[in-house]
């Protein structure tokens, strides 16, 4: 028989396990959301009850079930050219400041979390279309997420009409291939130019593995974190940025409320935070 719900102790345990792994804090107001997904996973894994399922989450050596649950709990809805004022800010204001410091190394941009890849591909397309200096530099775009399922989707690069609704027809034709099932697939060349990998923003070793970036897009993630995780994420982002590098947050987020380490930059198109250069 299917379990009706989680008791307080089990809910608390699931919450702590997810928090330790991802930094996401699910408070009591989101209990139904968490419970629904945990109960679905109990059925899917054919575990007898929540106690057995929790034991599996904790002790399964591969960590596969924990990853599956994380995948089920993360919010992944996005679309191409979302909050595109920051992309304009990137090409009009941030890059002109960054280019002199690059010398001969590539410009590095990080989409974190990248979800199903729309942001990373949008950055690539925007650079190719709107940045005059693109032929004079090498660019590396890395896209990371804690959710392995969305990373797979990002690598496949196939999108429904809703995801591409704000892509101008000319760009749709240029960078996408129409599929027979009314989806759109990113062209191979663009897909092959972005590196996708699994990274948790609260895992410092994983963060360090990605080396340093000139610009990090970390939008609408920190709103799901509590104060401790937000501070940790901010410290990890600071460490991941080149001195003088920029961090773009979601429109409702403010780095000033999390950390005093960053400098606030008010550009024409957007407010961006910067790791101070020495």
């Amino acid at each position: 028989m299917q379990q009706a719900g989680l008791n307080d102790v089990d809910f608390h345990r699931v919450r702590e396990i997810i928090y330790a792994k991802t930094g996401m804090r699910f408070d009591d107001t989101r209990r139904a959301y968490v419970e629904k997904r945990v109960l679905e996973r109990i059925v899917a894994t054919a575990e007898a009850d929540s106690t057995q399922y929790l034991a599996r989450l904790r002790f399964e050596r591969s960590g596969h079930e924990l990853q599956t649950l994380i995948n089920a709990l993360t919010v992944n809805e996005t679309y191409f050219f979302r909050e595109d004022y920051q992309l304009h800010c990137l090409t009009k204001s941030m890059l002109p400041e960054l280019l002199p410091s690059l010398k001969r190394r590539p410009l590095r941009i990080w989409s974190l979390p990248c979800s199903t890849g729309e942001e990373a591909y949008s950055i690539a397309i925007h650079l190719l279309e709107r940045f005059d200096g693109i032929d004079g530099i090498d660019v590396e775009i890395v896209a990371s997420d804690v959710d392995t399922q969305v990373l797979e989707a990002a690598r496949r690069g196939v999108y429904h009409a809703r995801s591409v609704q704000y892509v101008p027809p000319a760009l749709l034709k240029k960078y996408f291939i129409a599929q027979s099932d009314q989806t759109w697939r990113i062209c191979d060349e663009l897909r092959g130019s972005i590196e996708f990998n699994q990274t948790s923003i609260v895992d410092r070793v994983q963060m360090l593995r990605n080396d340093r970036f000139d610009v990090v897009f970390c939008r609408n993630l920190l709103i799901y974190f509590d104060e401790v995780s937000r501070r940790l994420a901010a410290d990890n982002i600071y460490e991941a940025l080149q001195p003088g590098g920029f961090i773009c947050l979601g429109h409702s987020e403010s780095m000033s409320r999390i950390s005093s380490s960053f400098r606030v930059r008010k550009f024409e198109d957007a407010i961006i935070y910067q790791r101070p250069a020495p």
Partner: peptide, 18 residues
Amino acid sequence: MAPLRRRVSEAPTASAAT
């Protein structure tokens, strides 16, 4: 599209993390 290039992540270098 030549300016965009892909680089596979490297293992973390010796750092305070280790």
